[in-house]
Amino acid sequence: MLAEKAVNQGVAPVTYGQGDRPPRGDYASARADYTCDQNWSAYTPEEHALYRRLYERQAAQMRGLACDEFISAVQHLGTPERIPRFDELSQTLYKRTGWEVVAVPGLIPEEAFFALLAARRFPVTGWLRKPEEFDYIVEPDVFHDLFGHVPLLFDPVFADYMQAYGAGGLKASRLDACELLARLYWYTVEFGLIRTPQGVRAYGAGILSSAGELRYSVQSPEPSRVGFDLQRIMRTRYKIDSYQATYFVIDSFQQLFDATAPDFTPIYRAVRELPEIEAGAVLPGESLIAAE
């Protein structure tokens, strides 16, 4: 929601307040915290049908590529025959992990995004792409946000990681370190891979909501797959106009949560003293994780 989304995910690189045109969405209806009403009754039968097509395309690819936690949790979104009601979904989600889903007009500023995560409120874009945007869309829509992000909020450890990330973001904005923290979000929440007994699997929302990158990220020999390293991630640039050249692989969601526990202030300081790493670069002595 705060970081650029990649073209290959069906979402072109756009950041709130930037670009050739204003972001799509009714920002006049937003409250001070950028949340708004979902207005579920305004969705048309055609939009519900389009959501179902998007859902079914991705669901058909999950086995052997997505992590088991995601596959188990995606059912909580309810029937794919209609766009979920956020209030109903929030009731189920809150009982599991204390999170709720809130509607937003679209991309929102960093501070507002961090504040919502820190309060265990996940912002989901209210509108759905047009039929002609089935494979390509400029901003993240309700399908990307719901299908890609929300299922793992049912996992207690990942849910705690997201809250910790939001709290860390509020601090990063005061330390002028949002770019470094955005790289962590990009390489975990959006494009993260996880090691499992069955092999590497995807858990990042940008991968899981992509028609093409899901298989590429797990099976292609082309990208570099590197073990999770916080400073390495914060130093590494990322691709916004193609499939990722580098993926970072965690051993567990607990590892991810534990990485957010320390005070990042000295980490930001250390990272700024080191050179940036280009996407796809392999460092001397660095071992890579093989494709499936």
Rank of each mutant, 00 (worst) to 15 (best):
Q38S: 05
W99D: 02
P109C: 10
R195I: 09
A172E: 04
Y43R: 07
T44N: 07
P131W: 03
A211I: 14
R225M: 05
Y203H: 02
V282I: 08
G204V: 01
A167Q: 14
V157H: 04
E190D: 01
R52I: 02
D251N: 13
W40D: 11
L184C: 10
E222L: 10
S41N: 12
V157M: 10
T97M: 04
G206C: 00
R235I: 01
R174L: 13
L117M: 13
P221I: 07
G212V: 12
R63K: 15
F113C: 07
F134L: 10
R183L: 08
E69R: 09
A28N: 13
I207H: 01
E278I: 05
H149L: 03
T15N: 14
T92I: 13
A211F: 15
C67Y: 00
E69G: 14
L274M: 11
H76N: 12
R174N: 11
S242N: 14
L274D: 14
E276D: 13
Q61K: 14
Y43T: 06
Q61L: 12
A6K: 02
G169D: 06
D229A: 11
A73I: 03
R82G: 06
Q198S: 14
I233Y: 00
P131I: 04
Q254K: 13
G212K: 14
Y216Q: 03
Y43N: 06
Y136V: 12
F113V: 05
F191E: 01
Q38K: 00
F253D: 00
L65F: 09
V282G: 05
I137Q: 15
T79K: 13
V271I: 04
Q255K: 12
L274V: 06
D258T: 15
D145F: 08
A66G: 06
V11I: 13
A172N: 04
I240E: 01
C36Y: 12
